[in-house]
Amino acid sequence: MFCGTCKKLQPVPKGRTYFDALGLPKRQAVDLQVVEQHFRENAKEVHPDRFAQSSPIERKLALEHTTLVNQAYRTLKDPASRAEYLLGLEGVVVGKEEARTQDPAFLMEMLELQEAIGEAKDSVVLDRQAAALKVRRERLLEQARGYFDDHLGTRDEIARALDELRYLRRLDQSLEVRFEELG
């Protein structure tokens, strides 16, 4: 990031990934503590506050670097968005038509779960649903880890798994809303 001789901040290199920005290996499995620590270290190096007295060019570069570091942190600290990002690096955008789950049985099931959450009368029912969702989510994330880190399964399978994960996350949000409604 810094010039070897003049020590000035350099432009963000083209194709710099979020993993590069945080100095992390390109893997699905990461230690969250390490993500946090790398984020802090990198932010300290490139934050615009460090360049408050520097030239406008350096300040602009600092802003670009920091924005990338912040974006990287936000994306990589969450396992689902990390997996989507990794798949994106392979050229597949989760949520786009070709990666969509078309399985009618699955879609029907999601609809039914959504209704069940909306109609839940007490938090015991919701707790049970939340626990079941968590198990499913973790299974899908483990599948993603297997694909990215150990080359298990196919790209299409993972695209569908991550799409499913999105549905589950939406259900999670509905759960939270319902929890609040029930107090």
């Binding site: 932010a43 300290k44 934050h47 506050d49 408050a52």
Partner: peptide
């Protein structure tokens, strides 16, 4: 002081 002061410290950062 961190941003424009006499004594820029590199060990403190606000996010």
């Amino acid at each position: 002081d961190l941003l424009g002061g006499s004594n820029p410290r590199s060990d403190v950062l606000l996010l």
